[in-house]
């Protein structure tokens, strides 16, 4: 991963979301979302709660099934296979295989509490990719080192602080060498003083050539790290663009009013 700037790296991890719709019961959460994230790009999705940001993220690795539209990664449909002019739903086994290429980091970490930090990181490479245990361990230690937690490899999640847990969760997502990493409000469950240690790790990743899609409320971080900032409201993308354009000169009234409420405290840092 450290040789991220090599040429082939930048061609993997193209995400194309086309007219995706999703409803929970009568509530339409996604109303035809289309979004393209270039290989190695960093897209930050912002918006009020209930705008469908997290749901959109979860459709990308098929944790939520879409009701309409489709999502493709490097041209390959997520959750379906094209045969003739039909889309066949993939079997569980194939979906799991697709998911190994898409890492996900959750708001409340979801580390396995009965496994140590290292076991958390080394579990999936063994069972999902068939690597040897020794190899997975070695790579796990390397990744824990990268997030600054090599000395806590034997600790259980409850013995770690929130920031440390989230860094382990990032290492766990990286262990499968994903093309794409999804972050679902990775710092929302953290004490303010622990937020930066996690954001610093994500900043490092942004330079590595992995495609990142991040849902966050940290506007300062979004401005630093994003190629594209996407503003969502009520299941639709209202506006998207480079951070300097969208933050300083938003075109839509809704974007402007949202930023006026959230940006000032965040930029005082």
């Amino acid at each position: 991963m450290s040789t991220a700037t090599a040429a082939p790296e930048t061609t993997r991890g193209l995400v194309e979301i086309t007219k995706v719709r999703k409803a929970f019961g009568a509530t339409e959460v996604l109303k035809g979302i289309s979004l393209t994230v270039e290989p190695g790009g960093v897209a930050v999705i912002v918006g009020p709660s209930g705008s469908g940001k997290s749901t959109l993220l979860r459709t990308i690795n098929h944790l939520e099934k879409v009701d309409g539209g489709f999502i493709a990664i490097d041209g390959e449909l997520v959750g379906y296979r094209v045969r003739g002019n039909r889309l066949h739903e993939l079997r569980e086994k194939d979906i799991l295989k697709q998911r190994t290429e898409i890492g996900m980091v959750f708001q409340n970490f979801n580390l396995f509490p009965h496994l140590t930090a290292l076991e958390n990181v080394a579990e999936a490479p063994v069972v999902a990719q068939g690597r040897s245990k020794a190899e997975a361990r070695e790579r796990g230690l390397e990744l824990l080192d990268r997030v600054g937690l090599k000395d806590r490899a034997g600790a259980y999640p409850r013995q770690l602080s929130g920031g440390q847990q989230q860094r382990v969760a990032i290492a766990r997502a990286l262990a499968l060498d994903p093309k794409i990493l999804l972050f679902d409000e990775p710092t929302s469950a953290l004490d303010p003083e622990l937020v930066n240690e996690v954001l610093d790790v994500i900043r490092e990743l942004a330079k590595s050539g992995t495609t990142l899609i991040i849902v966050t409320h940290e506007m300062g971080f979004a401005r630093d790290v994003a190629d594209t900032v996407v503003f969502m409201d009520q299941g639709q993308i209202v506006e998207q663009g480079a951070p300097k354009d969208i933050f300083t000169n938003p075109q839509e009234e809704r974007t402007r009013s949202f930023f006026s409420k959230v940006i000032e405290p965040a930029f005082n840092i």
Binding site: N61, L63, E92, K93, L96, K97, R99, T100, I102, G103, M104, F106, N110, L111, F112, E123, A124, V127, A128, Q129, R172, A173, L176
Partner: peptide
């Protein structure tokens, strides 16, 4: 826990 495991591709 199940979601995290599914996201990691664990069978």
């Amino acid at each position: 826990q199940l979601e995290a495991a599914a996201a990691l591709g664990i069978p």
